[in-house]
Amino acid sequence: MRRAGRGRFRRGLPPARPHVLDRAQRPVDRVTAHKWFNLAAREGVADAARMRRELSLEMTSDEIADAQRAARQHLATAH
């Protein structure tokens, strides 16, 4: 299952990017972007881990905790 998930998350990275920046290059929804990058990184997508790390530098600890909580909730409901 992890192999199949890895491909799904690789394809999912482009849709996750609009959560990071809008057309004027301003942050939009860092919590949602972090959640999707976290899920993709969990599946072994190296670019996602890098993007999550870079994004987290601009987030508060509360935002990161919210994103991690959202990722856990997604995993709990996805199975």
Rank of each mutant, 00 (worst) to 15 (best):
M1G: 09
R2A: 06
R3Q: 13
R3D: 04
R3G: 00
A4C: 00
A4Q: 10
A4M: 12
A4K: 13
G5Y: 00
R6L: 04
G7R: 15
G7V: 14
R8Y: 13
F9T: 03
F9L: 06
R11T: 07
P14W: 12
P14I: 12
P14K: 13
P15F: 13
A16Y: 09
A16N: 06
A16M: 10
R17Q: 05
P18G: 03
H19C: 02
V20D: 01
V20N: 00
L21C: 06
L21Y: 15
D22G: 11
D22V: 12
R23S: 10
R23L: 13
A24L: 14
A24I: 09
A24Q: 12
R26L: 09
R26S: 08
P27D: 06
P27I: 13
V28M: 05
D29P: 07
R30W: 00
R30I: 09
R30Y: 01
V31E: 01
T32H: 04
A33S: 03
A33L: 06
A33C: 06
H34M: 14
H34P: 02
H34R: 09
K35T: 02
K35A: 00
W36N: 07
W36L: 12
L39S: 00
L39H: 01
L39Y: 00
L39C: 02
A40D: 01
A40S: 01
A40Q: 01
A40C: 04
A41N: 05
R42Y: 07
R42M: 14
E43P: 01
E43A: 05
E43K: 02
G44R: 03
G44Q: 03
V45K: 00
A46G: 04
A46P: 07
A46W: 04
A46C: 03
A48H: 05
A49H: 05
R50W: 13
M51V: 14
R52E: 08
R53I: 04
R53M: 09
R53G: 05
L55R: 05
L55N: 01
S56H: 08
S56I: 08
M59C: 07
S61C: 11
D62M: 12
E63D: 08
A65F: 04
A65E: 05
D66M: 15
D66A: 15
Q68C: 11
Q68N: 14
Q68H: 07
R69V: 10
R69T: 13
R69D: 07
A70G: 08
A70V: 06
A71S: 10
A71Y: 08
A71N: 08
R72P: 06
H74D: 04
H74F: 15
L75V: 13
L75P: 05
A76M: 12
T77L: 13
A78H: 07
H79Q: 10
H79T: 12
